[in-house]
Design a protein around this nucleic acid. Structure first.
Lengths: 226, 226
DNA sequence: TTGAATAAAAAAATCGATTTTCTTGAGATG
DNA sequence: CATCTCAAGAAAATCGATTTTTTTATTCAA
């Protein structure tokens, strides 16, 4: 064995991909906005080639749209699409949950408990939004991690990213937020007791509730272009 | 059908993306093979930049794997993954089928009949493989087209591409092929009569049968690297 | 003979410049 | 006054060359 715990610095294109992905999910770009490539280049201090490669990957992932000879644009936010995303997310996550319960072993239970603990800790610092967001994402990942289907997890992750793009734009709602937090704990308990029926119902509720919040941000299509 | 409404010849990167995508699905590259970028460049007569952008998109789509500083490689073929792909495909397509039946209108029915007719025509020329493959893909698309969920269709398409990468490598089996063809016709009938239960069962069988054929090509993981 | 070290070669990633395509707006035309 | 044409400017896409990293081949020491 050699070397350090390989901090394996990855390529510029991968770094800018991750950065842009987060910025898109966080809503740092206006929906429908056309991305000015050379402005991005200056802002993120990267070369043109890595930047373009990242943009291409993001387009294939669905966080950008590529128009024939006129560059990349941020997808519009449409209520109809949010409903599609949330509905499918509920179905796929319930499907994965069932399989995760069947295949879940003690290691999965431990990881789930750990993820839930980190989420509760993150709850204590409401000002550190990004930490909570990360812990939240990881909790939901841990819940389904043992489902055994690589492709199902991949699609769920993609939908989650799409969903968050809407949810993060919605005005915060402390009451709902508290209820959602409570549901996280209940999901852990149902996971440990392998109560599939109740857990599916709860996860469905959980997503539906979050969906309701996310809907709050989505005004009917205005006719403003850039 | 009419010609494409916008002749707008697209970018080199999009063209090479489509070409490479088809070649990957058709199995023109060995599983696990490392792609030599400059060889691709020469072979397809494209520049480096469009080629790399296409490779990045294919990696995000799941038809290539990108390793940190050592380029792109064709994903290995693993029986376990084929099972995952086929199983999920069956679940998602059955889900879409139900929704497609509920939302299907006369226009959908017409398109489905048309697609089925083209598929039968393509059946008459067994030597024109690619035409049949295209007609087959379009038939399955038409069957689910009215399901109303953009994202569900997107994932199903992606799984279908993954599945075909395996299926097309399997040795042809005329008996099974004939049965699969018969099922296409039966699916159309059940669609017209909106018999959801029977149609779901049949579509599940259809995919399972095809899965069995595809499995024929997939030898257990040998320990050969490139 | 094995294994570590390293220099040469090959390949991948990135950069800077060029080419192509779109957009904008002034001037001509009906 | 509206519409069309076309040239200038801006932006996207692509190319060719350079830099960085990995791989291969070889040497030297144990």
């Amino acid at each position: 064995m050699t070397a350090s715990p390989s901090p394996s610095r990855d390529m510029a294109s991968s770094r800018i991909f991750e950065t842009l992905k987060q910025d898109l999910i966080r809503g740092r770009f206006a929906a429908g906005e056309k991305l000015a490539i050379s402005a991005l280049k200056d802002h993120y201090r990267v070369g043109l080639s890595p930047l373009r490669e990242a943009l291409n990957r993001l387009a294939a992932y669905g966080l950008l749209e590529q128009v024939n000879q006129r560059g990349f644009r941020v997808p519009a936010m449409r209520l109809e699409e949010l409903d599609d995303i949330a509905g499918l997310r509920a179905q796929l996550e319930c499907m994965a949950l069932t399989q995760a319960f069947q295949a879940g072993d003690p290691e999965w239970e431990s990881q789930l408990l750990a993820a839930h603990h980190r989420l509760r800790r993150a709850d204590e610092h409401p000002e550190r939004v990004e930490e909570w967001e990360q812990a939240h994402l990881r909790f939901h990942r841990a819940l389904l991690a043992s489902c055994g289907s690589h492709w199902l997890l991949r699609f769920i992750e993609q939908l989650h990213d799409q969903f968050d793009r809407y949810r993060r734009l919605a005005p915060p709602n402390p009451a709902v937020r508290e209820m959602l937090d409570r549901q996280h704990g209940e999901l852990v308990e149902l996971a440990l007791s392998r109560d599939i029926g109740a857990a599916r119902a709860l996860l469905d509720d959980h997503i539906r509730l979050s969906h309701g919040v996310a809907r709050g941000c989505c005004q009917p299509p205005a006719s403003n272009d850039d």
